[in-house]
Amino acid sequence: MSNAPVNSGRRRFLTLSTAVVGGVGAAAVAVPFLKSWNPSAKAKAAGAPVEVDISKIEDGQLIRVIWQGKPVWVVRRGEQTLEELNGIGDKLRDPESQEPQQPEYITGAYRSIKPEIFIAVGLCTHLGCSPTYLPDSFGEQVQGVTSGFFCPCHGSKFDMAGRVFQSVPAPLNLVVPPYVYLDDNRVLVGADEGNA
């Protein structure tokens, strides 16, 4: 047993230093562990909403984005296209979109929130091929219809609102995903008004 005096300042310093080093070590282990609970970037991208800038899309132009691993089309429709959509109901299988291929807030012949912007999942409802956009030559497919979507796999045809024509293999209109306008120039695909 030693009779040397106890240096309480040194003891406090060592105790405090040990606590600090232990706390830093615990944080170094905890941070990666807690981060592992979050979904990966790939998982977030697979189901996360996708923001689309529509400010530079011209009439008749289609842009593609990926949402949930699927192609989504965003098309700006001109005045002539909108007028044409109202006059072809007799050629369509489901002109009023009675089948639930779109959110409840998407109604009417245009199947969109704003008539000039059409948003749809770019997969045929027959067997999932991706139809081709024919902005000027769709009249070769359906007489009297200027533009639309033609599926080269089995010949299904859709108008500029994604409504399927009669006598083709596709049984349903194209799917319209949930979406919400963030402002006049941005759309969030994959989110409804309540969860945007």
Rank of each mutant, 00 (worst) to 15 (best):
P103W: 00
V75H: 01
V50A: 04
R11W: 12
P100D: 03
L14S: 07
E84R: 02
R76C: 02
A43T: 12
E83Q: 13
A48C: 11
S36D: 08
G87K: 15
P49M: 07
A48E: 13
T18Y: 10
I106C: 00
F33W: 13
N38S: 11
V65P: 09
D59L: 05
D53C: 03
I57T: 06
R93A: 11
V20S: 01
A46P: 04
Y105M: 01
G47V: 10
V21K: 09
V74T: 10
K91N: 12
L16A: 15
A46Q: 10
P71W: 08
R64Y: 14
I63S: 06
A26G: 05
L92H: 04
R11H: 12
Q68V: 08
Q68S: 13
A48T: 08
V50W: 05
D94A: 04
G47S: 12
K35R: 15
L92Q: 06
Q101V: 13
R64Q: 15
Q68A: 14
A26K: 05
V31G: 05
K42L: 14
V75K: 00
Q68W: 07
Q102T: 00
K44M: 15
N86F: 14
A28C: 07
Q102A: 07
R93H: 12
A45T: 06
A19Q: 09
E104Q: 09
W73D: 09
T15H: 13
A41I: 11
G23F: 12
D90R: 13
D94Y: 00
S97P: 00
K70E: 15
W73V: 06
V29F: 06
V52I: 07
W67G: 10
L82H: 02
Q80C: 10
S40G: 07
E83K: 15
G89R: 13
S40C: 03
F33Q: 09
Q102K: 04
V31P: 02
P39A: 08
I88G: 11
K70S: 13
Q98N: 14
L85M: 05
A48Q: 10
L85F: 04
R77W: 03
E51G: 13
F33S: 12
Q80W: 13
G78L: 02
E99M: 11
E79Q: 10
K44N: 14
G22H: 03
D59C: 04
I54R: 02
G78P: 01
